[in-house]
Design a protein around this nucleic acid. Structure first.
Length: 444
DNA sequence: TCTGGGGTCCTAGGACCC
DNA sequence: TCTGGGGTCCTAGGACCC
């Protein structure tokens, strides 16, 4: 290599970002263990709402082959055989522990993105000079978090977020890394070796579907994916996949997001422990969900212009009659008022509720995009038989009965009605089409 | 009998406008 | 009335994440 090239490469390296991903091991399980040290080494799981399924597994349970999301009732025998203990989840506790971890991480660098309840990305190239090397920094982070919170973490380091994720995966899986892995400092040959031993499905952003399609073309390992042309991957899977390929090559495409953007939607929903058969009980649960959602809404200083209510029967019981329905209620003006939202939600529920179904889940969604009233119509019932126009008409009818002068956005989309028939009025200032039911034409 | 609760981004394709 | 290109806006649905 020429001196000039080397110099330019050095310069490039000095400004290139370096990411560390800090991830708590078996987060929920580890939280429980902090407060009950006797659970250390005990095979255990933390269960979802209603103690339905395992949402966290200790290392011992993972080793037994128990998958994430396994229903608790399905692992009864295994639990008995291996003495697996189960705990109900305590999200308040986990949230608190999570922020303590973040506080510790912020003492290393303010350039930090809280990615999930148990993971943060740190941008570390600027603070590196205070340490011997990246491994030293990683070990310091790991030690500090453990000393301060009692929680075990692994640290993965790489030139892109995707590589940091991969490094974290290696640190978790292979003991010889002692919890800290830097794929950036690795010799190329070694990295490629690890990559060829790691399944392509383990890459951040490659889910089940894409992994299946990749494997069908004999792209089995991360290394195989690295060999593929990003352009070809884009052709097949889209731009997200292309970015992912570049990231694997060490070109950072995904930036650190230090300020969490405001949510675009807020969901509050729950499954019922046992089937619910009447509207009154559904109403009660919906009201609770609205209250929670409204709290979250105020928490981020937003208002919402529309609210979706949905109710569902149990999809795991295909032999029972299924009823999945939702309705979006536009609001006269954007609000964060619990009472207003509750009234709209209950009115919506009244419209979609049908007796003689065994309901398993209810929830509400607040749509916040642009703070504008927003309509999303999705009534699933009878779509096939009635066709789309009839379907839409019914939706419009339902809303209009309640609101008289309904705000309908894009109501004409997907129907056979022409522009003249619909006579929609719109302007740039008000992107919503306002119309009345009695002005709507009959769908053909 | 018992199967979580959140979120995001992207694409395809229709309606519409000029 | 027909044809058509270029562009925007919108929704549904798929795929992914923890």
């Amino acid at each position: 290599m020429l001196a000039a090239e080397m110099a330019s490469e050095m310069k490039l390296n000095s400004t290139n970002p370096l990411f560390a991903l800090v991830d708590v091991n078996n987060f929920y399980v580890s939280c429980e263990r902090v407060f009950q040290p006797k659970l250390e080494e005990v095979p255990m799981v933390v269960l979802s709402n209603n103690d339905g399924c395992a949402v966290a597994r200790s290392a011992e349970v993972k080793a037994l082959g128990v998958k994430m999301g396994t229903p608790w009732f399905q692992m009864q025998e295994l639990a008995k055989k291996h003495g697996i203990q189960a705990y109900s989840s305590n999200y308040t506790l986990y949230g608190d522990m999570s922020s303590r971890v973040v506080q510790v991480l912020k003492t290393f660098t303010p350039n930090l993105e809280v990615y999930s309840i148990d993971e943060s990305f740190l941008q570390i190239e600027t603070v590196l000079k205070q340490y011997q090397d990246t491994i030293e920094l990683g070990q310091q982070i790991k030690g500090q978090v453990k000393d301060t919170t009692g929680l075990p973490v692994c640290v993965g380091i790489g030139a892109s977020k995707t590589l940091a994720k991969l490094a974290n995966h290696l640190a978790k899986k292979h003991k010889q890394f002692a919890g800290v892995c830097d794929v950036n400092a690795m010799a190329k040959e070694e990295l490629y070796q690890w990559m060829s031993e790691t399944e392509v499905g383990d890459v951040w952003g490659v889910g089940r579907q894409i992994a299946r399609k990749l494997k069908a073309q004999d792209i089995q390992s991360v290394f195989d994916l690295l060999q593929a042309s990003p352009q070809a991957m884009r052709q097949q899977f889209g731009v997200v996949m292309e970015r992912l390929c570049y990231e694997l090559h060490g070109t950072s495409c995904l930036q650190l997001e230090e300020v969490a953007p405001a949510k675009q939607q807020i969901i509050a929903s729950r499954s019922f422990g046992k089937p619910v058969l009447n509207q009154a009980e559904l109403a009660q649960s919906v009201a609770t969900h609205v209250a929670r959602a409204a709290e979250k809404l105020r928490g981020q200083n937003s208002t919402t212009g529309a609210l979706t209510v949905f109710i569902q029967t149990n999809p795991f019981k295909p032999n029972e009659p299924q009823h999945h329905q939702s309705i979006t209620m536009p609001l006269a003006e954007s609000t964060d008022n619990t009472l207003t939202l509750t009234n709209a939600a209950l009115a919506g529920l009244k419209k979609i509720y049908q007796p003689n179904f065994r309901y398993k889940k209810a929830g509400v969604i607040l749509n916040l995009i642009g703070d504008k009233p927003m309509m999303q119509q999705s009534l699933f019932e009878d779509v096939e038989s009635k066709g789309r126009s009839a379907h839409l008409m019914k939706a419009v009818d339902q809303i209009n009965t309640r609101f008289g002068n309904a705000v309908i956005r894009s109501a004409a989309a997907g129907t056979n009605a022409t522009k003249q028939e619909w006579q929609m009025r719109s302007s740039n200032k008000s992107p919503n089409y306002t119309t009345r039911w009695d002005e709507l034409p009959v769908a053909r």
